[in-house]
Amino acid sequence: MKIFGKRLFRPRSIWIRKIVQWFFFLLIALIAVNHTLVESGGGIPFLSTASLHALCPFGGVVTIYQYLTVGTFVQKIHESAFVLMIIGFVLAFLFGPVFCGWVCPLGTVQEWVAKLGKKFFKRRYNHFVPVKLDNILRYARYLVLAWVVYVTATSGTLIFAEYDPYFALFNFWTSEVAIGGLVILGATLVLSLFVERPWCKYACPYGAVLGITNLFRVFKIKRAESTCKADGACSILCPMNIPVDSVKTVRDHQCISCLECTSEAICPVAKTVVFTTGAVK
């Protein structure tokens, strides 16, 4: 309901995003379980039995070098990862890192833990890290990306799987999981009590790749200065701590296109923060 351009009852969150996140979390979890069941002679009918490596678009990214130079994939990586990488790039080109904000189950789990953190710390949540330090740490994920690409290219093996919290999350019950992955997963979940999406912000190499598309994505988060009340709600609620209220167009490499800052969610004024291709006044 709208009166004089303001909504009386507005949702506080993008509820459909939560449903999409749940869907992909359950889908990946079931496939991971099915993969284990099939290896032991069982299995759920009509459900994929693929390994997690086959369903991770980042696997496509790390195998690019070997594919271009040798014509083969890195061990454990298959064509499906390559296909998902391309789909991920198409989505990111259009909408930015929508994969991170809507699909990635590790991001979803971090958001679930964040709910606990928000209950404990209220408005202090997600504002513990000093801004200067935070600004520097945000680029650490590019170092992680460079390291992963380098060691994969030189070794021809998926060494990152030994440290990958996403792999650990869906394989903690198998012998395939590495201690390093479990430790990083545990640290990520604990940190999520204080910081929203710590893995995504500071370490995720795939997020680093997709984040670059925020500079040129087709649909952008834009703020209409003429109607903005400058209440700062969009910035305070942004899970990635992006100062949406101080820019006209969000080009921050950390935006995950969750739309939580838009007028559809937290912004109280209609058509003020929007996800659009056009200009706003």
């Binding site: 993008i14 459909i16 995003r17 449903i19 999409v20 989505l91 259009l94 909408f95 929508v98 809507w102 699909v103 649909f219 739309l259 838009t262 559809e264 929007v274 996800f275 659009t276 291709t277 056009g278």
Partner: peptide, 12 residues
Amino acid sequence: MTLTSKPLAAIL
């Protein structure tokens, strides 16, 4: 062109 969450979810 402006997108809201539901069309975005469908396109995704």
